[in-house]
Write a protein that binds this DNA or RNA. Structure first.
Lengths: 243, 243
DNA sequence: CTGTAATCTTTATGA
DNA sequence: TCATAAAGATTACAG
């Protein structure tokens, strides 16, 4: 899969270094530069990022600007993200600030305020994070691929897709299509059962006929494999009988 | 802010090193050790922490346990916190994992899943974070501590057995019984379809009748739940027809 | 989770 | 119509 879809973000015009790095990734991500007064990077209507280096972070704690900034960020954008860049030993040591206080703030930001905190090592990594978030927000929105292990908070539809995914030879995409069309796993299986493989006169599989016919993405291989899995059949080869 | 009040937490009994460090801070924080199945540190009824070192973090991404763990954590405790301990250069370099993947996971955990991520440099710092969070929960907010035998997720060891496991109320053992008896997934589903729930004269479920009757461990709850998932509504309430 | 390879479906094209 | 090739999409697997 080549995910060459471009994403687009808005960068505060003071983030020069960041823009330089983004220029090197023009094929993946494009940006426009603006004067922003609440965030450093805007991903979408709902999502924006505040970027702080370790020193910035400590500094903004000291002069009490941090919470003001983050609260404003949250006020404007539903998904407020704080990228903490290069919060390493040096920063902890070079500042006269109490370590307890630093972690107290971190705890408050992430779990009381509810701001998503993402630590990065440097600006290069920050670019990666921006790209990933933008990709998720702009391209992958709504293709929730659930991991095969959480049969708990799933809705009935999700659970059915999940069952189908395990029951037949398919991934999440096809499973969803099938459940959307046939509603229940049993109906899906019935549909597969009632779908026939068409052969050419010379005996080569050509296509399918039946309930799955009108759906996109389901061909004779799919039917053959799943019939084998579900019903144990092996040879559906009826070449000469039809004549 | 000097905290005179003691705080109390529950630590999973495998976290020996952590307990050693906590022992040195007896005046600030007390703890009890338990076998926890969903978190590493429990702060209060609503708040619990999963602690992962950099290597743990990468490892749990690779074998897909991370999201399962975090979703369960979130499911049990309203405030789910992930402490990322020592996620430094070494970790990034020593693993063959793609950096994009690592940051993709971080982004998903913190801003899609909504788990509070707090980076620390080492175990000592982790202790500080635990203390700060406990202090906030217990002293500042006056919330009570104490345990809560967490609802266990079904013990699925090797999830690689058979596809019937996708059925809602079936782990490996039941799946094996069903396959042993009915051979193919389709036959299993047919068997469930053909199994009726028996009701008392007053309309309460009593037992089952049909293919699953003679198998051990399959009752009306199993049939009811799975019929609903597989076939949709189950108005199989036929109490008087049989008379 | 991401990136790449493998697999499958569909469309296009020539026999 | 059939067979093959190319293109597009999805799934499988490794890191």
């Amino acid at each position: 899969m080549t995910q060459d879809q471009q994403v687009h973000v808005i960068i505060d015009n003071r983030e020069r270094k960041l823009m330089e790095l983004l220029d090197k990734r023009k094929d993946k991500i494009s940006y426009e530069s603006k004067q922003l007064d609440v965030a450093d990077i805007v991903i979408s209507e709902n999502t924006a990022i505040e970027r702080k280096t370790g020193a910035d972070f400590i500094g903004s704690i000291m002069d009490n600007r941090l919470f003001e900034q983050l609260i404003r960020l949250q006020d404007v954008y539903k998904n407020a993200i704080l990228i903490l860049e290069g919060l390493n030993d040096d920063v902890f040591e070079s500042t006269g600030m109490n370590i307890n206080a630093i972690y107290g703030v971190l705890a408050k930001v992430s779990y009381v305020l509810g701001v998503a905190v993402i630590p990065t090592r440097n600006l290069e990594d920050t670019v990666i994070v921006i790209e990933r978030i933008a990709y998720r927000e702009q391209v992958k929105k709504g293709s929730s691929v659930m991991s095969r292990s959480a049969p708990k908070g799933m809705s009935k539809k999700e659970r059915r897709s999940f069952i189908i995914e395990g029951l037949i030879d398919s991934g999440p995409k096809k499973a969803k299509i099938l459940i959307d069309r046939f509603k229940t796993p049993y109906k899906v299986i019935e549909a597969i059962k009632n779908t026939e493989i068409l052969y050419t006169r010379t005996g080569n599989p050509k296509g399918i006929n039946g309930p799955l016919k009108k759906l996109q993405g389901f061909g004779w291989k799919f039917v053959q494999k799943n019939k084998e899995i579900l019903f144990g059949k092996t040879s559906t080869q009826k070449t000469l009988d039809d004549l």
